[in-house]
């Protein structure tokens, strides 16, 4: 799925890494538990989360993953922004809940990892 299309589907706003909106991603993983995210072997996924802190970005950095969808209008902190920019990570924020985002994107063809 094209990341720009994904952003539109969840009424999202890309807050950094906008150069990646032309990229495509095949899988998604929805979790607020970062140790669970760290079990993923693939790097081709978008993390759908409500966890708005620096460790969610660190987890993506360690996972070699480049895309985050932050739900429920959570605010991206300056520390998150700095780390995302350093690692060229796209962050999209959505006013929708994690459940609603996951439902919309699953219905639109984004695949689950497990």
């Amino acid at each position: 799925m094209n990341l720009g299309d994904l952003c539109n589907l969840v009424e999202g706003t890309a807050v950094c890494g906008t150069g990646r909106l032309g990229d495509s991603v095949e899988y998604a993983f929805a979790s607020d538990l970062m140790s669970d995210v760290l079990t993923i072997k693939s790097t081709d996924f978008i993390l759908i989360t409500g966890l708005a802190n620096i460790q969610s970005l660190r987890t993506l950095e360690m996972s070699d993953a480049s895309y985050m969808l932050l739900c429920r209008g959570k605010e991206v902190t300056p520390e998150m922004l700095e780390l995302a920019e350093e690692n060229d990570i796209l962050i999209i924020t959505s006013p929708y809940s994690l459940f609603r985002c996951a439902g919309i994107l699953f219905s639109a063809g984004l695949k689950p990892l497990y």
């Binding site: 970062m34 140790s35 079990t39 802190n53 460790q55």
Partner: peptide, 10 residues
């Protein structure tokens, strides 16, 4: 746990 860890997976 609020930081996204502490679920016994580490």
């Amino acid at each position: 746990r609020e930081m996204g860890f502490g679920a016994g997976m580490g």
